[in-house]
Design a protein around this nucleic acid. Structure first.
Length: 551
RNA sequence: UGAGGGAUCGUCUAGCGGCAGGACGACGGGUUCUGGCCCCGUUAACCUAGGUUCGAAUCCUAGUCCCUCAGCCA
């Protein structure tokens, strides 16, 4: 990519990147873009990519997040070997660098309050003013900084700042804070430290320590690049990595900011970080997404410097494309409608042969039991069918997949509600296996299960988390949760699936023919009562026709 | 308003002075024992205005619009 020119001699041809998450939340699909980019570029140029936790704010970071991040990156298919680093492991070195800066007269201890510092900083258009403490002697700064570390002061009493230029048009350069006092235990260093370095000081030096060549980050850090370079230019370092920015991912119908995701979790709008509706890696995994489909998605969206909003339809396309090739087909009925085949012998059961995956003949076939009593999908019958409805209707003949042609002869309704409760049909024995010897055609093929043989199952149907394409764009007085989709989860407790699904394992993925791709829930599914998550529907032309002309 | 960035089909993205291409979506058709897959086709874009040039999405000038920054978060 952009690296091609840089490879012309620089870094003696070495390419070394890193993925630097802060362990203060779960990773989401936007991070997947960064992961694929960083590990991908390293792989492309025969280089390496480190995993580094940017853990310099102990008040927000936890091991739970570290563990989930490691699991997610691994699941996505990337390997950082033994290069698992933590900024917190560099605290001692970072401290020494800070002392070096003080000695060079390029950093000072400021004793202004946070509020005062803000006032002194100026605004976007007006320059800031120097802090009255800006000209403390090197010795005094050294002494104060040492005592900050020793815990002699309370939070906020002092900070260490770089001495750059309070009048800089770039606000980031107006004597940025380098260290603050935070008497909070760190999940890794415990109580060893009570001062913690800031991002701008930590990140560039961590990159340098690890001899990173290309430091890829998102657009909002563009303005920080000047500081990234200033720190490295004003310290004796062996390696000065190049920071390169790219646009973060925005996905339609969801949110991708940690702040908002954490809010969805904490306010109970979803059931947790791994709720299948969440755009988190854990959520997508539980939903049934494959690592391959996510990597492929990241490849397709590309990398650029312009803000963009990727249509979630592309993500859905990617998972369908992958699962179409590898998911075994099965039959399952979501909303069962009882069908009695009047002319089928009451005690007879036949084992019919069904293809496991037409895209992959090597997966062979299986047997599916057929009997006099079946279930079909409620949506596959209409008493009064509109023009383009090809499925079952009174007097109409359709095919039951891999089974027989059946014709609807009678509709049973609930006398009270008028709701259709069962259908009586006749079958044509000559159409066994699904084809008519006389060449007769039917316009539809339905999926079905044998009532006495079927397994009961729970199925969870998921839809977009948000109604609005961009929930970040809010009207006056509203917040993004206002656009939550009330139908993002529909639980169906009385579904029936074919018996071959008995004993299936958590995480297994299937295509329920004509419906979509489903995966056995990793948390709530048990052999006695399997639970399936709908990963994504199949493309559905009939649904589109219905949507096009609403009644 | 200061500084730093960015603008190409509805969406994402190629292009590096020489026919604006691909993918997703949408629409239409073919095929089909999944209204799936697959195949074919249609739709549709260079932010604006000048300039340089035989020739500009690309180079220059001036504008317009959008994003980021005033945390002791990252």
């Amino acid at each position: 990519m952009i690296d091609e020119d840089l490879k012309a001699g620089k870094n003696d041809g070495r390419v070394h990147t890193r993925f630097p998450p802060e362990p203060n939340g779960y990773l989401h699909i936007g991070h997947a873009k960064s992961i694929c980019l960083n590990f991908g570029i390293a792989a492309d140029y025969n280089g390496m990519c480190n995993l580094r936790f940017d853990d310099t704010d102990p008040s927000k970071e936890e091991v739970e997040y570290v563990d989930s991040i490691k699991q997610n990156v691994r699941w996505l298919g990337f390997d950082w070997a033994d290069r698992e680093y933590y900024a917190s492991d560099y605290f001692e070195q970072l401290y020494a660098y800070a002392v070096q800066l003080i000695k060079a007269g390029k950093a000072y201890v400021d004793s202004l309050s946070a509020k005062e510092i803000r006032q002194y900083r100026g605004t976007l258009t007006e320059p800031g003013r120097n802090s009255p403490y800006r000209d403390r002697s090197v010795a005094e700064n050294l002494n104060l900084f040492e005592r900050m570390r020793a815990g002699e002061f309370a939070d906020g009493e002092h900070v260490l700042r770089a001495k750059i230029d309070m009048a800089s048009p770039n606000i980031v350069l107006r004597d940025p804070t380098l260290y603050r006092i935070k008497k909070v235990a760190h999940y890794r260093t415990g109580a060893r430290w009570c001062i913690y370095p800031m991002y701008d000081f930590t990140h560039c030096l961590s990159d340098s320590i690890e001899r990173i060549t290309h430091s890829l980050c998102t657009l909002e850090f563009e303005i920080n690049r000047a500081l990234y370079d200033w720190v490295l230019d004003n310290l004796e370092v062996e390696c000065h990595p190049q920071q390169i920015e790219f646009a973060r991912l925005n996905l339609s119908h969801t949110v991708l900011s940690k702040r908002k995701l954490i809010q969805l979790v904490e306010k109970g709008h979803v059931k947790g970080w791994n709720d299948p509706r969440m755009p988190t890696i854990s959520g997508l995994q539980r939903r049934g997404y494959t690592p391959e489909s996510i990597r492929n998605f990241c490849e397709r969206i590309g990398v650029a410097k312009a803000d963009s909003m990727v249509d979630i339809a592309l993500l859905e396309y990617c998972i369908r494309e992958d699962l179409n090739l590898r998911a075994p087909r099965v039959m399952g009925v979501l909303r069962p409608l009882r069908v009695v085949i009047d002319n089928y012998p009451p005690d007879q059961v036949e084992e019919l042969e069904a293809i496991n995956n037409p895209e992959d003949p090597s997966t062979g076939t299986r047997k599916v039991p057929f009997s006099r009593e079946l279930y079909i999908e409620k949506d596959d019958f209409m008493e009064d069918p509109p023009k383009k409805f090809f499925r079952l209707a009174p007097g109409r003949e359709v095919r039951l997949r891999y089974a027989y042609f059946i014709k609807c002869v009678k509709v049973v309704k609930d006398p009270q509600s008028g709701e259709v409760t069962a259908l009586h049909c006749t079958y044509d024995p000559a159409t066994r296996g699904g084809s008519a010897p006389d060449g007769r055609k039917v316009k539809a093929t339905l999926h079905w299960v044998s009532a006495p043989h079927a397994l009961a199952a729970e199925v969870r149907l998921y839809d977009h988390l948000f109604i609005k394409e961009n929930p970040n764009e809010v009207e006056e007085g509203r917040d993004f949760t206002h656009y939550l989709n009330p139908h993002s989860l529909e639980i169906l407790k009385d579904c029936r699936v074919e018996p071959s699904l008995a004993g299936t394992a958590p995480g297994r993925r299937y295509q329920f023919e004509r419906l979509g791709y489903f995966c056995v829930d990793a948390v709530d599914s048990f052999p006695a009562k399997p639970v399936f998550n709908r990963t994504v529907t199949l493309r559905d032309t009939w649904a589109k026709i219905q949507k096009a002309r609403p009644k």
